[in-house]
């Protein structure tokens, strides 16, 4: 199946994930996260990890998701190490290396936590790799999110590269003036201000210009035209209600589990 995007006159190939709207994808991520918090069985957690990984692999695996996984792997490794050695519920030794005992309970606890983190990464990765900034903006506005909030969320994605570019220019200018790479922590802290001050002033200046431009173009006008979503999604309301309801139930159940410990 294909769809013609009139705005840019090109034919885009439709995939199964294009029929799922952005909010459903986010609610699905929240639902999977809450499931992993409510059911602490390790096999169930492993099943959820596999499900969210499959979801990601059957759509598109982006470099951002791989970066997120590698970013968290070090933390997961230290968590397994610290909990395996020092977890308060440690009783049964798993193995010993040079008189240091690694315990089963801490190891399993760390594995459960790691599984939850991987589920969040994969589920959010699915959302990130299958939606675009403009698609999210149009959809959120079409379902009634205030346009100012939509602008806030989406403009960051466009402004960020601009700020990064400005920073590179300022750093290059500082180097051209003969400022050498700093070695000690004090030197490094001192080197922050000569770069950040011009960067921040320039960024705020551009914000003022953007604000004046938006005002001139009638951003605050009540008769704004709503953007039309690019895709037609499958059963959006039903999936929103269903996922929201199940997630609320899971949150309620988790809260009850916590409260019942004190009763």
């Amino acid at each position: 199946m294909e769809i013609r995007d009139n705005s840019i006159q090109r034919i885009a190939q439709m995939h199964w994930y294009n029929f799922v709207d952005p909010v459903t994808k986010l609610l699905l991520a929240l639902f999977l996260t809450m499931l992993s918090f409510d059911f602490t069985n390790l096999y169930f957690e492993a099943g959820l990890v596999l499900f969210s990984l499959m979801l990601l692999l059957l759509s598109r695996l982006s470099s951002a998701t791989i970066n997120a996984v590698s970013f968290c792997l070090f933390l997961i490794a230290t968590m397994v190490l610290i909990q395996g050695l020092f977890y308060s519920g440690n009783i049964h030794p798993l193995f010993s290396v040079m008189r240091i005992t690694f315990y089963r309970e801490g190891f399993l606890y760390a594995l459960t936590m790691s599984a939850r983190i991987l589920i969040i990464i994969f589920a959010i990765g699915f959302f990130m790799s299958t939606t675009t900034v403009s698609e999210n903006a149009k959809y959120l506005e079409s379902i009634g999110m205030p346009y100012k909030l939509v602008y806030l969320l989406m403009s960051v994605c466009y402004i960020l590269p601009q700020i990064q570019q400005n920073m590179k220019k300022i750093q290059f200018a500082e180097r051209a003036r003969g400022i050498n790479p700093q070695k000690t922590v004090t030197q490094k802290v001192r080197s922050i201000l000569p770069i950040l001050i011009p960067l921040i002033i320039k960024t705020f200046d551009q914000s003022i210009n953007r604000s004046i431009t938006l005002q001139l173009r009638g951003f605050d006008s009540p008769s704004r035209t709503l953007a039309t979503p690019k895709y037609r999604y499958f059963q959006t309301k039903l999936s929103h209600y269903l996922l929201t309801l199940v997630t609320i139930l899971l949150i309620g159940w988790k809260l009850w589990q916590i409260i019942s410990k004190f009763l």
């Binding site: 601009q162 700020i163 770069i195 950040l196 938006l214």
Partner: peptide
Amino acid sequence: VATVTLIPAAVGINYVAKAFAEGLK
């Protein structure tokens, strides 16, 4: 509108400042 354009700039500053601190270790 001024606040709406200030907030993304502030978010950008957060992001860049964090990357800058990481770059300087």
